[in-house]
Simulated assay, not measured.
Amino acid sequence: MKIFGLVGWSGSGKTTLLVKLIPELVSRGVRVSTMKHAHHAFDVDVPGKDSYEHRAAGATEVLVTSANRWALMHENRGSPEPAIEELIPHMSAVDLLIVEGFKDHPHDKMEIFRRETGKALLQPNDPQIRAVASDGPVAEATVPVLDLNDVAALADYILDFTGLSKAA
């Protein structure tokens, strides 16, 4: 399984790009999964649901399943946030795992950059950023700069970089 990340400041368009990239990659025969780093207070469960009540009662893990999908919720309960390497074994094998966020993890990634966020480019300080996708010129980048709106070209880059273009 190849791993490639999308990073960028909040509001840069990581998720917007990812929901366009996934169908582009899938249409090319690439099996894709994603892992997203979320804010500390996120929750996928709601009070009143049985699964929520199980966790609130102290269960470390709750697995909810139906004919359509299943989800495993794990409570860290004071343990440190797990690293990507600890989470990957919980996922099914696919061709490409796209990681959204996890800026500080040392995996190959593409920075999503928009000047309008008012934030500085991450790329000069992160040697794992292999390309920048932007909606305008980024003269200070020292890696390839790709058009953020050209999803096909971005998919080409990711597949070429990961070696999956030869397999797909």
Rank of each mutant, 00 (worst) to 15 (best):
V7E: 09
A71K: 13
L25I: 08
S51D: 03
K49S: 13
Q123Y: 04
V132K: 15
I158A: 08
F161V: 10
G8Q: 13
G163D: 07
M110H: 01
S12F: 08
A93H: 05
V46A: 14
L17R: 09
T65L: 05
G11L: 05
V46R: 13
N76P: 00
D50R: 12
D150H: 12
A152I: 00
G13S: 07
G29E: 06
P23N: 10
V7D: 02
E140V: 02
A133C: 15
S27M: 03
A59M: 11
A83E: 08
G8F: 14
S10A: 15
L148E: 01
G48Y: 10
I88V: 15
A141I: 12
D45N: 06
L148R: 09
D43I: 14
M73T: 11
T142G: 01
D135Y: 11
I84G: 05
I84P: 10
T16M: 12
V7K: 10
L159S: 14
K109A: 03
E53V: 04
T15S: 08
V143N: 01
K166Y: 02
E111T: 12
D43G: 15
G29Y: 13
D50M: 09
S134I: 03
L17P: 05
R69W: 10
M1W: 03
P127C: 07
E61R: 14
H39C: 01
G101Q: 03
M91T: 02
L6T: 11
G78R: 06
I112F: 01
G58F: 04
T16E: 03
N125A: 06
S66V: 14
R114S: 04
G118L: 02
Y52D: 05
L148N: 00
S33F: 07
P23W: 01
H74M: 13
L148W: 03
A133P: 09
M1D: 01
I22R: 11
A93E: 15
P137N: 04
D160G: 14
D50Q: 05
L87D: 00
S51R: 11
F161E: 12
G118E: 02
L154P: 00
V143H: 03
I129A: 05
L72V: 04
R130F: 01
E61I: 14
S51Y: 01
I158W: 05
A167D: 08
L96D: 15
G101Y: 08
E85C: 10
L25H: 02
I98N: 01
E81N: 08
R77N: 13
T15Q: 06
L87W: 00
S51T: 15
S134W: 05
Y52L: 10
N149I: 02
N68I: 14
D156W: 10
L164N: 09
D43M: 14
H54L: 13
W9F: 13
H105A: 14
L17N: 07
G5R: 09
V26L: 01
Y157L: 06
Q128G: 06
Y52G: 11
P144F: 03
K2A: 14
I98E: 00
K14N: 15
T117K: 10
L18Y: 05
S12W: 08
V64H: 13
T34V: 15
K103R: 06
G11D: 03
A56K: 15
P144E: 01
I88P: 02
D50N: 08
T117Q: 04
F42G: 05
V132Q: 14
G8M: 15
E61P: 00
A141P: 07
G58P: 06
